[in-house]
């Protein structure tokens, strides 16, 4: 598999995360998003006419859109079927619901980060930040009640799903767009749990978590 990749892209990071969790081998081709704007070049638009990262090529299949690629990789390479629980309609519905929510996070929190960090001056950054806070309030309340019911992840499964992966990067990078997460304690705790998933990898701006608490042996 080949990933058209940009190191600072949260959407590319979603795929690097899932492939690391699943232990899938892949190669990358670096696309110079900034300052080269190579994702808008004629060469890359033949791979993705939308001129957006990420995209993959796997055995002749070309696929774009981070969420779509998460569905593809999880369906194809996760033997346990926990990341994309296709056999459980109620759970799958919720996964898809939160994948759509993750698109909203990209449209707001990621947009504010592009404005502050990568000179996307045409973006209305105040509207983007406000939109991100609205979504974060909803997710924080959701995670508070999930925790209260003994559930660690966004969807009611014992295992994390691709919904967690889809939401994680642009939440974790939100401060680069001037979006403070102090008001979202349940989101902050979920971020710690996410970082402790075996196989977790970092990207610039995202730090690893410390060791988890283990009850001392009696």
């Amino acid at each position: 598999m080949k990933l058209y990749n940009y190191e600072l892209s949260g959407n590319c990071y979603k795929l690097r995360l899932l492939m690391s969790f699943l232990g899938v081998d892949y190669e990358t081709e670096a696309i110079d998003f900034y300052p080269g704007q190579k994702h808008k070049s004629p060469d890359f638009r033949q791979i993705n006419p939308l001129g957006q990262l990420p995209a993959i090529e796997d055995n002749g299949l070309v696929l774009r859109d981070a969420q779509a690629i998460l569905v593809y990789i999880a369906s194809k390479y996760d033997a346990d079927g926990t990341w994309y629980p296709a056999q459980d309609p109620a759970l799958l519905g919720q996964v898809m619901q939160w994948l759509a929510f993750a698109d909203g996070i990209t449209a707001t929190a990621s947009a504010a980060r592009l404005h502050d960090g990568l000179y996307y001056s045409h973006i209305d950054v105040e509207a983007a930040r406000k939109g991100a806070h609205t979504l974060f309030r909803i997710l924080d309340e959701h995670l508070f009640f999930a925790e209260d019911a003994g559930q660690a992840w966004i969807c009611p499964s014992d295992q994390p799903t691709i919904a967690d992966i889809a939401c994680f990067p642009y939440i974790m990078l939100s401060e680069e767009g001037g979006i403070n997460r102090m008001d979202y304690p349940a989101i902050r705790r979920w971020c710690d749990r996410f970082k402790r998933i075996p196989g977790f990898i970092v990207m610039p701006g995202i730090f690893p978590a410390g060791p988890a608490f283990e009850k001392p042996a009696a």
Binding site: R181, M182, P185, G210, F213
Partner: peptide, 21 residues
């Protein structure tokens, strides 16, 4: 400044009071 349940093991909670973080 926090609920007891906010302070789970191995976590650092962020708070602010009267302007001080």
């Amino acid at each position: 400044i926090a609920s007891s349940t906010d302070l789970v093991p191995r976590h650092v909670y962020q708070a602010q009071l009267l302007g001080r973080e």
